[in-house]
Design a protein around this nucleic acid. Structure first.
Lengths: 225, 225
DNA sequence: ACCTGAACACCGTTCAAGT
DNA sequence: ACCTGAACACCGTTCAAGT
């Protein structure tokens, strides 16, 4: 990646890839995923939509880059300690990132091969190696953790977004889900019904970590008997 | 400007929710997620876009219903045997469903609270109960499995879609990813580099099942020492 | 009740024309 | 090299008007 001049002291910044991505993140945070349009972005940057195409290849490029900026920031802020607690820290870091910026979740799950994905995978992979997991089991271990982290985080983000769409806060939303589940047919949905109560009071973050520990336990435990 | 040459196929059945969903599934399968538009759907059904709104509330409703139809079909086709092998069967059933119909993956992960999600959760939950998992661990166990199944399946579907976008078959796509990873910076990405070789030859389905077994192992193993 | 199709209010993206 | 803004080819959705 060729570096450009970093003398950013100018008062009126001219358009640049960085500035566009920065404005995109602001727009995504304030208006959600649907709020990011070239027209709104152009207005915010006091330019025309066509100008953006000089710096950004497409909307997908824009979303991907914005997402990668956030992920890189998050990962850089983490301290590295023991392997297992580092894995937990990475997991929680991504969970919180997506919780606060739901659009990161969909960007992350929609486009594979993303640099962001490799960044996260690398962090976790190094810890899996440090744990002494045999070579041939490393891929499965990292794959399971990646899928779980991205899967739960995105699901959580989607939940919040759905709640916001319906104008509910977290409590009322869970209450509504709980009620809906408790009214399911007893014969067809006994398990979902039995979970209805737990849904209402559960702590997303704690449950998320419990799942991570479950997978770590599977990774740690001896080979299948 | 373009004259309509297509003699609209006569409509033998009158419009109905079921017929619209059926046609949507055909369209989604043949043209992908972006191929489902009200205009294309209306043409296929020899009607106008407005007519569809009499039966379907919105596009989101349409996608959700199409997704639910597929999931219900898939789950109904599964035989129930022992708890663990039933969980594996559900997991593989969803994996294959999403592999063959990638749009199901994004519909499933985008909209939570979906009936489809409850259907899958119920099937898995019943098996978790049958395994004798203590009440207070059931939610974490089911949550981990759900997240893993939906996460990996959707990631896999996204990969295939990306490959198709670039006009590559599965082999060439994995080859490309493998090459990209092997060219990453050694200092920054040692783990991803070391996985580059394995990526090329790996079997998605086998890896997916390996992850399921990893989680099942975690569920089975005794409480944290 | 159900269908029609034009119209509305948007999109992402392109491109001749400017500086 | 970089920016402008009108224009193109689409969207989902609505609605007066038909049967």
């Amino acid at each position: 990646m060729a570096e450009r001049l970093r003398s950013a002291g100018r008062r009126e910044q001219s358009l640049s890839r960085e500035r566009i991505i920065e404005a995109s993140i602001e727009l995504l945070d304030s208006c959600g995923e649907d709020g990011l349009t070239y027209r709104a972005l152009a207005e915010r940057l006091a330019t025309g939509p066509g100008a953006l195409y000089w710096h950004i290849a497409s909307k997908s490029d824009l979303l991907t880059s914005a997402c990668d900026t956030m992920v890189a920031q998050t990962l850089n802020a983490l301290a590295v300690t023991t392997p297992e607690s580092t894995i937990r820290a990475v997991a929680l870091g991504i969970f919180d990132l997506i919780d606060e910026h739901p659009w990161v979740g969909s960007a992350l799950t929609r486009t594979p091969g993303l640099l962001s994905i490799v960044r996260i995978l690398e962090r976790i992979g190094q810890q899996i190696c440090a744990l002494g997991v045999p070579d041939e089991q490393q891929w499965a271990a990292v794959g399971a953790l990646m899928a779980y982290i991205l899967g739960v985080s995105s699901q959580n983000a989607a939940n919040r977004q759905l709640a916001r769409t319906q104008g509910l806060d977290r409590g009322s939303f869970l209450e509504a889900v709980s009620t809906a589940w408790s009214q399911l047919d007893t014969k067809q949905y006994p398990f979902a019904r039995s979970m209805a109560g737990q849904i209402r009071d559960h702590d997303d973050r704690a449950d998320f970590l419990a799942g991570i520990d479950l997978i770590l336990k599977g990774i740690r435990s001896p080979r299948q008997p």
